[in-house]
């Protein structure tokens, strides 16, 4: 599963988010049912994005490439690999988003879309209520985890670009809290 021994924050996230080993088994079990629908989900996702003028600007001229990348990422979530490579892949997305100036708003909006859309696919194609509930919980937990890893790396990369280390960032946050409390 995950190698998080030195990652205190990720451990805390996983503890609260509750994405566990049995969720991996659930996702592997439902993968053959969900995978055939991911292409359609990706198409619907980009159709929706193109309707927003601001987002459409970012997509101009690269829609096919972006769809392919998105579908590849979505499919990879069902591979059952949630170890170091998985973490690194999500972090790479956060890093790239800083470099190509894709703000966190887009990740939050995308994840929100996927939560609704994949839940709908599950309820449509997994008829056993218990299995559907378990699958939804596992998949939502996985999407939450991806968003956390992507956003965390985005933030870290942005701050590093400004020359502000994580330690300094924590100090600045703590300073703000002290002032608010006093």
């Amino acid at each position: 599963m995950m190698t998080t021994a030195n990652d205190v924050n990720l451990n805390t996230f996983l503890h609260v988010c509750g994405f566990r080993l049995e969720d991996r088994e659930t996702i592997l079990r439902i993968a053959p049912i969900i995978l055939p629908h991911l292409g359609r989900v990706t198409d619907r996702f980009y159709d929706l994005l193109l309707q927003d003028e601001r987002i459409a600007e970012y997509l101009e001229g690269r829609i096919d490439l972006l769809k392919k990348t998105h579908l590849g990422w979505l499919e990879s979530l069902f591979s059952g690999d949630y170890g170091a490579d998985f973490i690194q892949r999500q972090e790479k997305i956060g890093e790239v988003h800083v470099n190509v100036r894709v703000p966190p708003l887009f990740v939050a909006a995308s994840m929100s879309f996927l939560r609704a859309e994949l839940s709908s696919v599950i309820s449509q194609y997994i008829l056993d209520r218990e299995e559907a509930g378990q699958s939804t919980r596992a998949l939502l937990g996985l999407l939450d985890l991806c968003q956390y890893l992507i956003d965390r790396k985005y933030n870290e990369t942005l701050m590093n670009n400004l020359g502000i280390s994580q330690t300094l960032l924590v100090r600045l946050q703590t300073t703000g809290k002290k002032r608010a409390a006093s």
């Binding site: 502000i164 300094l168 100090r171 600045l172 703590t174 300073t175 002290k178 002032r179």
Partner: peptide, 9 residues
């Protein structure tokens, strides 16, 4: 702490 954090930033 505040002087330190602000100066470094």
């Amino acid at each position: 702490d505040r002087v330190g954090a602000m100066a470094a930033a």
